[in-house]
Every structure is written in structure tokens, then in C-alpha cells.
Write a protein that binds this DNA or RNA. Structure first.
Length: 951
RNA sequence: GCGGGGGUCGCAUAGCCUGGCCAAUUGUGCCGGACUUAAGAUCCGGUCCGUUAGCGGUUCGCCGGUUCAAAUCCGGCCCCCCGCACCA
């Protein structure tokens, strides 16, 4: 039977037997594992595969540990990507069509994808097919999609948000968005013809008060107010006089509209020429002196307020503008400025920027050879460089105010901003990070949405409770905990609703659609009853139903649904929930997983809080990031077609564990299938075989096998499946081969034990192959539902004798190699005399915990304890032993020498093996009986290390 | 810059918490041998340097320290990955 046929056969049999369809069983301990539902705008790929498989292996492992396992799966459609992609298909956008084509989607199917509906139908179906082909042990009955396309799920999410609102976990606030004034709509990335990725950026709008009104200037660096020396305006431009929130402002003519969008009360009063402002004096925020208004050509009335505050110490533009004026009497005269006064303006040192000094802008301008204020390229570069550098390394000098002296720049920035805003000397103001143009060909601006809903992740009580939930969770790997703890504190309020895209509408205001990271936080609870409620008609999907299923509701109060039915479903939720494990990539720590935890502590009592998170790195392909442009992007389907499901799973399992990025190795994948076939052949050829008589080395292999299984089980408990796989699949065969070399033919029961153990141990990883092997072994039922093998650590004593043989074998090989002896005639093994054991025992008693032995004391003890004839040799032996051997043996060495091993017996049992191995006579003798040339080697004999003489 | 995780013998990985049986696991690649008409598969051996007796030398990002003893502990530096959000 071919591999695909075999894998298909088992998938069919599992489905027929419904072994993965989870039903509550109060007698049995449950285990609920899940994976963040994937966003279905493509097919499952290698990246999904790795994380997914970890959940899958855990599900299968826990089932074999006797747990009743729930492992469900669903699909996420909320948000803008699918809606936008469908729109683009409708518009026949070439890049979108190409993307589909890359996935092999053309013709009618491609055409149909102009409707989001078609995406929901096509991709989840294919996802499921591909994952079934991979052999996933999922209960597919519970599958669903999100958004209002699915009324039941939709109702569930509405229930969740009602609960959040009742619990006061939501607040309304303002939030900046990218806006098209023409269409009066939010402009997402997908709605732009240029400027994708540009976002609103918060500026600090500074107010400068003077006779003509209040000049306003936007800055990203409020901490530099201490270094202001003047103001800049566009002398040839025209400014607007505007009444803003009761104050009279002077700003660019574009600004009133922007201010209005940002929630200010704006009335345009008239205009004023820039020229008129020049030479006037204004009182700046943050410092205590008047500033003069000067002309500058880099002032652009189209950006911000068209007015710029000047900090020549730290802003290259400002320095250069000032320098240009200072160097030109004519220029000053042109603007009616007193050149002498201008010349006296000097930059003020306010920030220590490390190697760039305390007045970095002039220095940098000179160093880069900036010609004048029109040398834009150099000035831009200087600005970039300086901005980043002082943000990262800068410290405020003692000359600054507002208690900022000594603070790092980023901290000072926050402090100054907050101080100025609260004193009314500045206001928050937003501009885009760069120009963006909408699909309707309008330039976008920033609008403050006033009634934006937020989840209050910043709330300290909520955070504290969530932190408590985290404390009682199990994390895989444990190392991830620090990152989680940091994130819970760091999270701020989250804008949880959108005016566009797909999703569930806020129950109390259907203008808002719940955002995709907010409708995916507690839905794991929905899995517990999904197969019951998915198909319910709308009239049964009441608030009361979900309150009775997941909250505090009364089952008898549910409209249109039988109370007993509701109670039964509630019992299922009670049985399965909380989830025991959620597996994802480590990038979700900072949003999705933390959100999930927050929402659980808001909606559910502590008994229903999540029990475990597992996170992992992002899969690399042969050491490189996977990407379509590199040509190393693989879908699960492609991998299965090329390697088969089991080989794909084995390679994924082998690619890594822990937080490091796992690495899919092509060369491993190429040989994985062969390795698996080899195991199956091995099982087939050996099932039922073996001898019945015992052999001395049987016990050793039995112990080694048991130890390996024990280690593998412990590794699986910690989700270290690669470690487990390596123990069972790569290391055990080495031991088995040694075992065969030692005894020729394996013992019947032990052989069966070996085959059965490895087969079951591999079942979570490569289930199809394991089923096939299990059938060959006449196993009971499916291996998928068999019990994971048990093992225990091997007793040292059992390993010691075999270690002696292995060591001796290796020593002989080394000697033959180094001495260039091709075919030895006789190998004599000279077993150490009793008194050496005794001597080692004495040394062990005298050794301190560092392994040091007081030599004089040792010799004295040895003299009285050891037989007379040995005394002469004992001195040199003990010296060698204590100085040279002990340090290399490591701590705990003494234990291995306390119980004497009868080396003669052990070696004699292995004599046939050694004779065969080296194809020569092997003599075992006491060191004291050494004859002829062998005598010279006899002295080397030590406990557990016989002297060897080769002839 | 901030938070987190890393850097090991061609490549990939184990070991590090709890220092010493660590020249260091396992896979892959490569080399040699057996089997085979051959290829493939399989099995055996080798794969830091040196070595005519089981040994010696030099290694675990770089520099320094602690210790009888450091891949492992401490300090500094360099480099890589993830995240720094309102997006799935």
C-alpha cells in the first residue's frame, strides 16, 4: 500500500470510529487544548503547521495519558483584510489577482472571490481538508467561522460585550484615525492609493502668547522647549487668525479644518501676513523669556501650523536658519531686523547627547557640510541622525526646568508634554506620519473619533486580577513568563471597535463593529457547545441563552429553548472549561494571549481562568525566513504531496522547541520518509520474533528502554516533543544495535516491548505510521487511544556492568588504532586486584566534597589497611588515582565504587562478544596472574577499568 | 533605546538553571568500508589537531573575573531573533 493510501486509510478509520469527537465523561479527567483560529485569507502553510502540530501532539499525547481530550478548530474572518481583498478582486486589481494565482486560484473560483462570502466558504473548507490530510485529531463538528455571517457566534460575542460593559471594563474616549474629509470616512491601509502604513502621530502643539494673539507650533520634541531661542514663520506666506476654543490663534490656513476634525471649536476670523509677524515678541511655554519671530524658508504653511519653534542647539534646521540670518546683514535688513541683536542669539545647551556633545546641531551641520537652510538632503539626514541618537542616548542637563534635569530624553519628553498640556500651554495635536492619499484621490488627514470604545486594559484592578490569573498558569516554556508579566503592565486601553470591516456589531450601537483582536478572547468557551448552538435558529440565540450557558443565567428563563436542554449544554461547558492549553507563536504574547487572559478575568470566575499557554518561535526554512519572495514558502498541501503527512510531521517536530525560531530542514525532510518506512519494515520483520532463553545483557537493554521512555514522557509533559522523539527514534536504536551485537538475537518479550514502546511513543508525532505498526503488532484498537508507555529511570547498578564492557570495547579499539594493530592474536584483560577497590574505598572516605584528599593521611590509612604485599604499588596507584582520576570523575564518583562489581564474571560473560568483535582470542585473568609481556600492563588495572594487553 | 529570547565542533541541534565522568548529544552533509553486476537502500567506521597502547593539545560569539576545576557562574562588549500596538 502506498504511503498516501495508508495515511488516507487511517484518517478514514479514525473518522469512522469517531475517536476524536469529544463527549463529556464525568468519570474521566478532561484536557482541552486549542490553537488561535487562523485568519482565512489563504491556505495553511508551514508556519501554521509548526504551531498547530504542537497543539496536535499535545492533544494526542494527553489522550494516550488517559485524558478525555477536546481539540477543536475554527476560523477567523473578522476585520478588514478579507473585506478589502474581496473588494480588490471585484475591482480586478492585478496584484490581488496575482496573489490568488500564486495560491493556484484562477477562473470561476477567482471571480467568485469578489464576495467576502466566497472566502468564508472556500478557505475554511480547504483548511480543514489540508489539516485532515495531515492527520489532525480534531473534533471538526465544533468548527465555525466568526462575524455576523455566523448568527450563533455573533450572538455569543454580543453577550460577551454586554457583560464587559456591565462589568465596567469598557470606556468611551477619543482616538485618532486616518480620515477622508470628502467621503467622511476612515481610510484604512487597503483604501489608499499611496501612503500605506502612514498613521496618526501625536504632536505637542505649543502656544506662544503675544499682542497679536497666540501663535501655535507643533513639535515632536517638547522636551526641547528649554532650548528655544526664537520662532520661525514663512515671511512670504499668509496665516489665518482663528478663534479656537475661546482663544485667538494664529496658524496656517490649512490648520482650522484639521483642528475642527480633531475636536476643537474653530471659527476663522481673518488672515494675517507672515511678514507682519516678523520681529514681534512672544512668550513661549515652559521658559521664562520672550522670543522673537524670525523668517525661515523651511517653514511650510502646509505642515502643522506653519509656525516652528526654534531650538538651534538640537535642531539642524533651526541652527542653519539662524546661521543664515546671522551671516547676512542684507537678509536682516530685508526683514527690518536688527542684525546685531540677531547675531547675539546663541544656542542653549539643554541635552547631553553623548559623543555628539551638548550642542549637537551646529556641530553636526558643520561636520556634514550643510551649505544653508536650502540644503534639504543634508539637513534631513542630520535631523534623522540627531533625533534618533538623542532619543536613545540623550540626558537632560541641569540647565533645564520642570524637574527634568538628569532624566533620559524619552522620560523628559513625556513629563514636559504632560506638564504643558495640563497647564494649558500646549495641546495634543495629530498629523500623519507621511502623506496618504485615499482611493477617492483625496489627501487624508487625522480625525479624532470621539465616541471610540476602549477595553480598559490599563485599569490597575483589572491588571492585578489578570496578573493573579497568570501566576497560577502553566507556561511552556517557563521562560516566557517574564515577557507576559511585562506585557500585562505595559498594555494600555485598546480601541476595540471599528467603523469598517467584518465582525460582530456592538449590541448597543450598530455603527460599530467589534475589532478582530477583541472578538477572539474568550471564544474558546464557545467550542464547548459549538456543535449544539451553531445551527440554532436566530430566535433561540438570545442573550438569556448565553447567560445561562456561560454566565449566571437561569436555564428556565431562556426563551424558545427547553430548560433541560440548556442545563445539559451548560454541564458540557462546566465539564470542559477552562481550557488547559492554548498554543501560539510568541508574537501573540503581547496582544492576543494577554487579551484572552484579561477577558477571562473579566467575564469568568477564577475557576474558569485559562490553565496554560504555550508559545514558540517562528519557523525558518533552512535557516532563512519563510517568504513568498524568497521562494521558500510552502503550504501544508505542498508538503504533504511531496513528503507525506507523517514525514512532514516528523520534520516539523524535529525543527525545534522552546522560544527559539524552529528550523525546517529540507535535508531532514528528504530522509524522514525513508526513516519512517525503515521503522515499519523493522517492526514487520521482527514482530513475534526473538529467543526465549535469557541472556545477561537483557536486563541492561530493558533498563535502557525503560529509561528512554521515562525521559520521553517527561519531555512530552513539558511539550518538548523533539526531545522525546530523539530519545525514542534516534537514540534507542543505537542502544538496540549494541544490544544485538552483544547477544546476537533479542529476547522475545523484550523485543516486543521495544517495538510496542517505540510505536506508542511515536504515535502523537507520526500517527499513521504508528497505527500501521500497531496493527502489525496485534495491538488492541487504535494506537491513538492506547496508553503512552511507562518507564522508570534505570538503576545505576544495572548500567555499570554494561558500561564496563562498552568502555573496555572502546579502549581496545583505541589501542588497535593508535598502535596500528590490524589483526590481533590475543587480547588479555587483566582484572584489578581486590586491594585496589579497597584503596579507592579509603580515598572515597577521606575525600572532601571537592574531591580533595589529604595525601599523608591517605597513605597512613592505606599502609595499615592494605595487604603487605601491595603496599609498594599502592602508594603510586593512590597518588595517580587521587590526583588524576578523581578530578575527571566528577562529583558523586564515590558512589560508583562503593559496591564492588565482580569484573571477572562480567567480562567472562562478554568474552564471546569480544572474541567475535575483534576476531581473536580473549583471555580474562587477574592482574596478579599476568605473565610475560603482559606484566608491564598489569599495573594499569584499576577498578572498573581492566588493564589491556594486545598481542 | 526599552522588554524578552538567543550565539556550541561544515550546517542544524542537545548540554548551561543545579560547575567536574564534556572534545561535548543527535540529525544532516561529507569521507571510507561491507553488501550489490551497478545505482539506490541498508549496515559498519571516520569527520577540531596531533599521536606506534587506551593518550596529549586546542575549542563552545569576544574580553576579563571567580574557582583546585568554566560551554556551564559573575562583569563588560559585539552580533542575531521577537515585540514596542490599535493590525491580523
Amino acid at each position: 500500500m502506498s504511503k498516501p493510501e495508508r495515511e488516507g486509510k487511517w484518517q478514514q478509520r479514525w473518522a469512522d470510529a469517531q475517536i476524536f469527537e469529544a463527549e463529556p465523561n464525568p468519570q474521566q479527567e478532561k484536557y482541552f487544548v486549542n490553537f488561535p483560529y487562523p485568519y482565512v485569507n489563504g491556505y495553511p502553510h508551514l508556519g501554521h503547521g509548526f504551531t498547530l502540530l504542537r497543539a496536535e501532539m499535545m492533544a494526542r499525547y494527553q489522550r494516550m495519558r488517559g485524558r478525555n481530550v477536546l481539540w477543536p478548530f475554527a476560523f477567523h474572518c473578522t476585520g478588514t483584510p478579507i473585506a478589502a481583498a474581496a473588494q480588490r478582486v471585484a475591482e480586478q486589481e492585478p496584484s490581488q489577482l496575482r496573489a490568488l494565482e500564486q495560491m493556484g486560484i484562477t477562473g470561476t473560483l477567482a471571480k467568485s472571490l469578489a464576495e467576502p462570502q466566497a472566502w468564508f466558504e472556500h478557505f475554511p473548507k480547504r483548511f480543514q481538508q489540508d489539516l485532515e490530510s495531515l492527520g489532525l485529531a480534531v473534533d471538526w463538528r465544533r468548527s465555525f467561522i466568526t462575524t455576523d455571517q455566523n448568527p450563533a457566534y455573533d450572538a455569543f460575542i454580543r453577550w460577551q460585550f454586554n457583560r464587559l460593559r456591565e462589568g465596567n471594563y469598557l470606556r468611551k474616549g477619543s482616538f485618532p484615525v486616518v480620515w477622508c474629509s470628502e467621503r467622511e470616512t476612515v481610510v484604512g491601509d487597503h483604501d489608499r492609493v499611496s501612503g500605506e502604513g502612514e498613521t496618526p502621530q501625536e504632536y505637542c502643539l505649543l502656544k506662544f502668547r503675544g499682542d497679536a494673539g497666540t501663535l501655535v507650533a507643533a513639535t515632536l520634541r517638547p522636551e526641547t522647549v528649554f532650548g528655544q531661542t526664537n520662532l520661525w514663520v514663512d515671511g512670504s506666506g499668509t496665516y489665518a487668525k482663528v478663534r479656537v476654543d475661546g482663544e485667538e490663534w494664529i496658524c496656517s490656513e490649512q490648520m482650522p479644518d484639521k483642528l475642527r476634525l480633531q475636536g476643537h471649536d474653530v471659527e476663522v476670523l481673518g488672515t494675517i501676513a507672515g511678514r507682519e509677524l516678523i520681529g514681534q515678541r512672544y512668550v513661549p511655554p515652559g521658559i521664562d523669556r520672550e522670543l522673537i519671530v524670525l523668517p525661515a524658508d523651511f517653514c511650510d504653511a502646509a505642515i502643522g501650523s506653519g509656525i516652528v519653534t526654534s531650538v538651534p542647539s538640537d535642531a539642524p534646521d533651526d541652527w542653519q536658519g539662524l546661521a543664515d540670518l546671522q551671516e547676512s546683514v542684507e537678509l536682516c535688513a530685508e526683514w527690518n531686523l536688527d542684525h546685531n541683536y540677531i547675531k547675539e542669539i546663541e544656542p542653549l545647551a539643554i541635552i547631553d547627547s553623548g559623543e555628539l556633545g551638548t550642542v549637537p546641531a551646529p556641530a553636526l551641520c558643520r561636520q556634514m557640510g550643510v551649505r544653508d537652510q536650502h540644503d534639504r538632503a543634508r539637513l534631513e539626514e542630520a535631523k534623522q541622525q540627531l533625533y534618533l541618537h538623542s532619543f536613545q542616548h540623550g540626558t537632560m542637563l541641569d540647565s533645564v526646568g520642570m524637574k527634568c534635569a538628569g532624566l533620559p530624553v524619552d522620560a523628559a519628553r513625556e513629563k514636559v508634554r504632560a506638564t504643558l498640556i495640563s497647564s494649558g500651554d500646549a495641546v495634543r495635536y495629530y498629523e500623519l506620519t507621511g502623506p496618504a492619499r485615499s482611493r477617492w484621490l483625496t489627501d487624508c488627514t487625522v480625525k479624532i473619533v470621539e465616541d471610540q470604545w476602549f477595553l480598559k486594559y490599563d485599569d490597575s484592578d483589572w491588571t492585578a486580577r489578570t496578573r493573579k490569573a497568570l501566576d497560577s498558569m502553566e507556561l511552556f516554556p517557563k521562560k516566557a513568563r517574564a515577557q507576559f508579566e511585562y506585557v500585562l503592565d505595559w498594555l494600555r486601553d485598546w480601541a476595540c471597535a471599528r467603523e469598517h470591516g467584518l465582525g460582530t456589531r456592538l449590541p448597543w450601537n450598530d455603527k460599530w463593529v467589534i475589532e478582530s483582536l477583541s472578538d477572539s478572547t474568550i471564544y474558546m468557551a464557545y467550542y464547548t457547545v459549538a456543535h449544539h448552538v451553531n445551527s440554532l435558529p436566530v430566535e433561540k440565540l438570545s442573550e438569556e441563552l448565553f447567560e445561562a450557558l456561560f454566565g449566571d443565567g437561569d436555564p428556565t428563563a431562556v426563551p424558545n429553548v427547553d430548560a433541560e436542554q440548556v442545563a445539559a449544554w451548560r454541564d458540557e461547558f462546566e465539564y470542559w472549561y477552562p481550557y488547559d492549553l492554548r498554543v501560539s507563536g510568541k508574537d501573540l504574547i503581547q496582544n492576543h494571549l494577554s487579551f484572552s487572559l484579561f477577558n477571562h478575568t473579566a467575564v469568568f470566575p477564577p475557576a474558569k481562568w485559562p490553565r496554560g499557554f504555550a508559545v514558540n518561535g517562528w519557523v525558518l526554512v533552512d535557516g532563512e525566513k519563510m517568504s513568498k519572495s524568497r521562494g521558500n514558502f510552502y503550504t501544508i498541501r505542498q508538503l504533504i504531496d511531496r513528503y507525506g503527512a507523517d514525514a512532514t510531521r516528523l520534520t516539523l517536530c524535529n525543527s525545534g522547541e522552546g522560544l527559539d525560531d524552529p528550523n525546517w530542514e529540507g535535508s531532514f525532510a528528504d530522509t524522514a520518509g525513508r526513516k519512517l518506512e525503515r521503522w515499519l519494515r523493522f517492526v514487520t520483520e521482527n514482530a513475534g520474533g526473538g529467543r526465549d532463553e535469557p541472556h545477561p545483557v537483557d536486563d541492561w537493554f530493558a533498563a535502557t528502554l525503560s529509561q528512554a521512555v521515562h525521559d520521553a514522557g517527561r519531555a512530552c509533559d513539558r511539550m518538548r516533543f523533539r526531545t522525546a522523539m530523539r530519545h525514542l527514534f534516534f537514540e534507542l536504536p543505537h542502544h538496540y544495535r549494541w544490544y544485538l551485537r552483544r547477544c546476537g538475537e533479542p529476547h522475545r518479550e523484550l523485543l516486543h516491548d521495544y517495538l510496542s514502546t517505540v510505536t506508542r511513543g511515536l504515535a502523537p508525532i507520526v500517527p499513521h505510521l504508528a497505527e500501521e505498526a500497531w496493527e502489525v503488532l496485534d495491538g488492541n484498537g487504535f494506537v491513538s487511544t492506547a496508553s503512552y508507555p511507562d518507564g522508570k529511570p534505570a538503576p545505576d547498578k544495572l548500567l555499570r556492568g554494561e558500561a564496563l564492557i562498552q568502555r573496555t570495547h572502546a579502549d581496545i579499539e583505541a589501542i588497535l588504532k593508535v598502535a596500528h594493530i590490524e589483526s590481533p592474536q590475543t587480547i588479555t584483560l587483566l582484572v584489578t586486584p581486590d586491594w585496589k577497590w579497597q584503596a579507592v574505598g579509603i580515598a572515597a572516605e577521606l575525600a572532601d566534597e571537592r574531591g580533595r584528599v589529604e595525601m599523608q593521611h591517605l597513605m597512613k590509612m592505606a599502609r595499615s589497611a592494605l595487604p603487605t604485599e601491595a603496599r609498594k604499588e599502592a602508594a603510586s596507584f593512590l597518588k595517580q588515582w587521587t590526583l588524576k582520576e578523581i578530578p575527571t570523575l566528577g562529583p558523586g564518583w564515590a558512589a560508583r565504587y562503593t559496591e564492588r562489581l565482580d569484573e571477572t564474571v562480567v567480562l567472562e560473560q562478554a568474552a564471546d562478544f569480544l572474541t567475535d568483535a575483534f576476531d581473536c582470542r580473549v583471555i580474562i585473568a587477574a592482574a596478579g596472574d599476568a605473565k610475560d609481556e603482559a606484566t608491564s600492563k598489569a599495573r594499569q588495572a584499576a577498578p572498573l577499568r581492566p588493564a589491556i594487553f594486545v598481542k
